[in-house]
Design a protein around this nucleic acid. Sequence first.
RNA 1: GAGCUAUUAGCUCAGCUGGAUAGAGCGCUAGCCUCCGGAGCUAGAGGUCACAGGUUCGAAUCCUGUAUAGCUCGCCA
Length: 514
Amino acid sequence: MAGKVAPLLTDGERIAGVSAAGPYVNFSLNRSCFIEHVLSEIAARGEKYGSGDQGAGKTLVIDFASPNLARPVHIAHLRSIAIGQAIYRIHDFVGWKCVGINHWGDYGTNFGQLLAAYLMWADPEKVKANPVAELLALYIRFNEEKEQNPDLQDEARKCLSRLANGDAEMVSLWRFFIDEGRREAERIYDILDVHFDEFLGESFFADKLEDVVELYQKAGLAEESDGALIVRLDGDGEDIPAPCMLRTSNGTSTYHSRDIAALLHRHEKYAFDRVVYVTDMRQILHFRQIFKALKLLGVDWIGGASHAPFGMMSFQGEAIATRSGNIVLLEDVLEKAIELTADIIDEKNPDLKGKAEVARQVGISAVIFADVSSRRARDIVFDLNEMLRFDGETGPYIQYTHARFCSILRKHDQPADPMADLSMLGQLAEMRVARQLEEFPRQLESACDESEPSYIASSLIDLATAANKFYNELPVLVGDDENLTAARIRLVDGIRTVMRTGLLLLGMNAPEEM
RNA sequence: GAGCUAUUAGCUCAGCUGGAUAGAGCGCUAGCCUCCGGAGCUAGAGGUCACAGGUUCGAAUCCUGUAUAGCUCGCCA
């Protein structure tokens, strides 16, 4: 069949050849034509290449990072921060109005434990001098001693109840804890260059409980069960056996009711078209319940809600758990990465100006890339050496490639010529680069639709690989054919543009020298 | 007991809306600066795509079951 069909298809300007190969009909693209097409597109769109008007007039609300302020930011938290930030930037790039929300945990059990531990054991002066480390030590000690002495949990409950009743000492301590936790978290976000548009703690929604209860009671969806108020979710085809609990038998709000209140609040405030939650996989059921509960309520916008879950990070075969002290602080990892990068710069590029800043940009980006480069769903085993690898498919590899082509453009010392004769390009290595450049917008769109930044990471790796092969095979500036140089400069400019865009979308830096 | 997610080279991963001989990186082996940045490039070795069925002209990819791992299943968040 293929043998009969192929001869009937004529060659044209864009198709250089048609041939039969077994059951397939192969089309060969006219390379020059293809390359010219891609580079014209990049020249026309400039730094916006890859973005269409997909998001025009639409609003995204994205909930990410959302730490518990009773505990320090550790390496496993990087996942939500890095993935969330990338999803935010990707939407922003293709025209969405984005609202990044840090919905931090400033309420509940952990704070009760911390309050109780503080009352029992803390040296206020020491805590004041070094709050993060001292509070962490208290938290760990509480959980250790709780093993021997279960009554401690009652102490925690008492503290929480005193807090809820407005006890001045508790309120003042609690404020101190969240202020410190907040200051610490924001310091890390600054280091990572991550920004939020709204910070709202769970405590803000704790007193919105009755509004939610009323909605469900009016709709006839709420029912009493063992003293608690629940909404059954097992009514229709997509059964969720576990009900959604609105109110505990003690009359307090729950994670469910607070999140429902928060989502209603957000829709009222932002009228979003899409809302994405970036959390680990343990919360898959939770969000299914929330979304279903709102669907039962008849809200028509719930179809725009999605959960972008990611796999768990473990540490030498053990769960990373703050209460047992089995954690690695995120900041420590970032500092190590920066130090290591500085050493490498001293070795490879000692005369680089602004070394310290570049070391920060490369070191931090390496850690971010290690986190966003594989698909969200994968579980990750934390391995510092793996995270700080600088060759092969890594963040520094992409940045290095970008810097290398920036270097060519610097040496060329004049802007890419829009009139360059692109028909001179047609070598295989050039074609491979062009194909990656052409592929980028599609990967970007998938990354946006599926909340999967790793597509962009893969795309950049493929582009960098093709670009480095091109670099090694074909000279750009060396040689006496000015027209060829002008044409290849256009290709180099395209590489630079797309690599920079991709790096920034992933929340990384794109230094021009390193 | 039920459910979710995963399982691809020694290690880390890509490929998953079905198509040609399953691809990278790391590590290992052997190479590449008379030429734009060697954090690079080239070549080689390395695979029963967890297992068993099924659908199909064709399955790593879709369906069913099994195994293994992680997670979850109303008063933690």
